[in-house]
Amino acid sequence: MGQEFYLTGYFYAAVFLAVGAVVVLGGLIASLLLAPRGHKTREKLRAYESGEEPVGTAWVQFPVRFYIFALLFVVFDVEAIFLFAWATRFGQLGVVGLVEMAIFILVLVAGLVYAWRKGVLKWT
């Protein structure tokens, strides 16, 4: 019974997935069928930049400063998933769980404070 109920819940997730796929593929196929097929001039193939003339290619080397923000995102994403696991059993884990989580977060806050003090969070 429990197993059946568990997978029935994911059946709805599969329906959502299918609807999402149909919307995306439907848009692409409709555009393929309906769009006029003219000759492809240089102007038509150019990237649309809201009316601006595009400069260079879209593939450029980004400044390395972005790396810090990507890594901070990963770190706090991992923290969030641990927090979620902790929150579901907060009542049973009690004070011990609270202390464990406090230590975990404090260590990460130390990293955040370090980033702050070094001034890398400021965009200059």
């Binding site: 400044p63 390395v64 400063r65 790396y67 810090i68 890594l71 901070l72 990963v74 770190v75 991992v78 923290e79 260590v107 990460l108 130390a110 990293g111 955040l112 370090y114 980033a115 070094k118 890398v120």
Partner: peptide, 14 residues
């Protein structure tokens, strides 16, 4: 995670 954060800051600081 802290080590990764500090490493990223040291590597990417300009």
């Amino acid at each position: 995670l802290l080590a990764a954060m500090v490493g990223a800051i040291i590597l990417a600081r300009e």
